[in-house]
Design a binder for these strands. Structure first.
Lengths: 186, 186
DNA sequence: ACCTGAACACCGTTCAAGT
DNA sequence: ACCTGAACACCGTTCAAGT
């Protein structure tokens, strides 16, 4: 007993994420991850649990990768900045990003992200009976766009066009959010 | 030679779709489909090609499943009806539906669906320099919502709440489309 | 023309065994 | 405590062979 570990959870997730970035999510197999770490597949189970748990770990990593908006931004501006940061994460991690559209907001980190959106909506003046719904619709529109983009639905269009589409989406969200406010914050 | 075929493409796709509906997309394996047809996996290759081609076939089936809107609806009303029909298809075929967010509009059927959306936008008065972009944003918002719903992102919310969210989305799309018209059609 | 058997290179996962 | 070997039940796909 007391054998020094040759791998750890962080290293396994690093390797799995790198593999996903390079070759897509389907390249993330227990064997491929293990082989890159110089270990057999069975060694991974102690550190990350099974395959599903490994994917959960990657989603957690994804959320950690999202840059927080500068704290002097609030309301619609903050919302737009968060959407841009989310898109940057999507572009850095195309393979893993689509998993976000699948999971309910359940982990502490995901709940924290949602709380930021809710706060921005409240500052923008969204009626309190509407914040939940608005948060879901705004998040869905932004996630839907980024997932479409990174998973290739727009691959027949030049990047320039897609960038302009995203700018317009942000513009619409900003406008939507401010049009629906009951009263200015101060 | 001249042996009578025991299976055909349509039957293979029927079986694959049924399997996806019952147990999700990951249950659609060549072996499972074949076994349900009373045949070995290798028999499928002649009729549907490989696994990727089989999935393409399922996506085609999905588009065929979408009800066309009543022909006396035009503009925003038509758009809303198409979105509702798309959602119904998503609910009938939860397993396969998310593939739509992955694929570019390339098949004849998919191009036909897009043309309907474009036409509805034009009738609603969307400026011709904006129809392409608007079509992409509207489709993305609707697909993003339905994929979220059928793949479980909203599973912590009661159906009633999700239905209300969708109604609001349609309302916003209808309003958005008519606010941005340059001139009434007649 | 259509289907199969055998074969290959993969998957995820378990469990007892080695150090 | 940590890793492995052997084993199991799966994957998708090919190719020559049977009818």
């Amino acid at each position: 007993m007391g054998r020094p570990p040759r791998i750890d959870r962080a290293g396994v997730l690093d390797t799995a994420m790198a593999l996903a970035d390079e070759s897509g999510l389907e390249a993330v197999t227990m064997q491929a991850v293990a082989s890159r770490l110089g270990v057999t597949p069975m060694a991974l189970y102690r550190h990350v649990g099974d395959k599903a748990a490994l994917l959960d770990g990657l989603v957690e990593r994804l959320l950690l990768d999202v840059d927080s908006p500068s704290p002097d931004l609030t309301g619609p501006r903050q919302l737009m900045e968060m959407a841009r940061a989310l898109r940057a994460t999507g572009q850095r991690h195309r393979g893993v990003f689509p998993l976000l559209l699948t999971r309910p907001v359940a982990t502490p980190l995901a709940m924290q992200v949602r709380a930021s959106v809710v706060e921005a909506l409240e500052v923008a003046g969204t009626g309190s009976d509407r914040v939940g719904q608005t948060e879901r619709l705004v998040s869905t529109a932004v996630l839907g766009f980024i997932v479409s983009e990174v998973s290739g639905r727009f691959r027949n269009h030049p990047r320039q066009v897609i960038d302009a589409d995203f700018d317009r989406l942000l513009e619409l969200l900003g406008g939507f959010v401010t049009h629906h406010q009951d009263r200015q914050p101060d």
